[in-house]
Amino acid sequence: MSKPLLELRQIFVSFDGFLALNNLSISLQPGELRAVIGPNGAGKTTFLDVITGKVSPTSGEVLFKGFSLLRKNEHHIARLGIGRKFQSPRVFENLTVFENLALAVSKPKRPLPLLLGRNINRYSDQIHHLMSIVNLQARASTTAGSLSHGQKQWLEIAMLVGQDPDMLLVDEPVAGLTDEETELTADLLKSLAGDHTVLVIDHDMEFIRRLNSPVTVLHQGNVLCEGSMQEIQQNPEVIEVYLGRPEGGNL
């Protein structure tokens, strides 16, 4: 195996004594598409928080392209090439779709080059291309706040792609989407893998199956098991975690 793009080693995160991540180790190869599932409270979102610098782990190491991400600010990590889509869509509601994408696409991200630099028209083609991928061309000058939930999800995915990161962290991309949109999203993510490394977190098993990728199951802040969707579904531990103990007789 080649050198992993992202590697988490023995990560612990504690919130006032509650262990959100408990000795979590995981690594991703360049170009890989990986799905992460887990019941509520398994630590999925905290896991992304650690990678993107929102939460600093109590102990452990995070390596990206061989460099440590610990104690780096969110914007540094983003500039290094890690993009993130949030669980509930977060777009800039008072900006138009075009302006949202322009912020993502823009290469200079420091204040002075932005102020003195050239006009956004340079990125116009790229932005229109992005809008056509997610079917938002007609909405270019609509404010993002007035988009529907599904459109916001897609806008955020398009922003993520526009950022052109090496690694995409996608948190529940299909929540609130129709079946058709879910399929399109799955295809889009699959097409991105290869050039990019993609990590998807979701609850929707149909969607995960469609991604047809290795799956990691998180439980109580730790990796429960890894494998293909088929293997996971056969795994007795996973069944127990998701459905409760058989002898408990609850489910």
């Binding site: 993107t52 929102k54 600010n73 969110e74 914007h75 983003a78 500039r79 993009g83 993130r84 949030f86 977060r90 777009v91 800039f92 509601e93 008072n94 900006l95 912020l103 993502a104 991200k109 922003m159 950022q163």
Partner: peptide, 11 residues
């Protein structure tokens, strides 16, 4: 609108 989100976009 959303300052934390902006950080994750690299600003």
């Amino acid at each position: 609108d959303d300052e934390p989100r902006l950080r994750f976009t690299g600003y």
